[in-house]
């Protein structure tokens, strides 16, 4: 089966709006299964659907430094998306093409990232349900939502994330840190450059990631494409939701 491949970039609100727009179109069978690989420009922050914004973000710091932040439609935790250190992926597909079983579908999709990281020379390990670790530190996190027939799973791959910025923007709950046995955020997350001890090109990382997903998802061929006019229009409409206080401060 061939999939559409979209590689693009956008700001925090646009990126979340596009993922949702594609999901809604996939649900109506208007577009094919899609792998989107994108960058946040400028850097931004997303929080999980169920998270309390004041609980998990350093709002003072974000507002003072004019860093965009929004709520995702997917559960999970808060993420700092570094424009110069993090690649985000989104898999939007028919549930039947991945797995009806939620846990299994996380494993299958995360398998693409694990494959890519191993190809790059890192000992990556999948930690259910939504994390990928290297040297026992998180390098990638994912979150999935489902409609009746289709799913959206998006997630991060940190290659050179500024861990100081990550620590300044996010406010992890104390109980969570104690459970992990370490105190600082930057002690429990890592990046590709840090683990490899050298830099590699972003194009190489993206190409390897595409290969990884091809293998993990059983894709015959990725066809480079763009959003349809209808997807773009819907994303423009959804953009205002993602930047609205009602949505962001819902919890």
């Amino acid at each position: 089966m061939s999939w559409r491949l979209i590689i693009d970039k956008g700001n925090t609100y646009w990126n979340m709006a596009v993922d949702e727009a594609i999901l809604i179109h996939r649900e109506k069978n208007l577009v094919p299964n899609t792998l989107r690989i994108y960058v946040f420009e400028p850097s931004g922050v997303t929080i999980g659907y169920f998270q309390k914004v004041r609980e998990v973000l350093n709002l003072d710091y974000l507002l003072q430094n004019k860093i965009d932040f929004t709520r995702r439609i997917t559960g999970g935790g808060a993420v700092y998306h570094d424009s110069e250190g993090e690649i985000t992926y989104a898999v939007i597909a028919d549930i039947e093409d991945i797995s009806r079983d939620v846990t299994e579908s996380y494993k299958i999709i995360c398998g693409g990232i694990v494959y890519a990281l191993r190809k790059l020379g890192l000992k990556a390990v999948y930690k259910p349900v939504n994390d990928i670790l290297v040297n026992n530190k998180k390098i990638s996190g994912s979150a999935q939502t489902r409609k009746k027939k289709s799913l959206l799973q998006h997630g991060t791959l940190m290659y050179n994330t500024n861990l100081d910025m990550l620590e300044k923007t996010l406010r992890p709950p104390r109980v969570k840190l104690e459970d992990h046995g370490v105190v600082r955020v930057s002690d429990r997350v890592t990046t590709i450059y840090r683990e490899l001890g050298r830099e590699i090109s972003i194009d190489d990382i993206i190409n390897t990631l595409v290969q990884g997903f091809k293998k993990a998802l059983g894709v015959d061929k990725f066809l480079s494409g763009n959003l349809t006019v209808s997807e773009r229009k819907l994303a423009e409409k959804l953009y205002s939701k993602y930047e609205s206080k009602v949505w962001i401060y819902m919890r």
């Binding site: 999980g48 998270q51 309390k52 609980e55 559960g75 939620v102």
Partner: peptide, 15 residues
Amino acid sequence: VLISGDFFAYPEDFI
């Protein structure tokens, strides 16, 4: 009552 956290729920609106 407000339930929050970094968990997942399918469907989300159950919460």
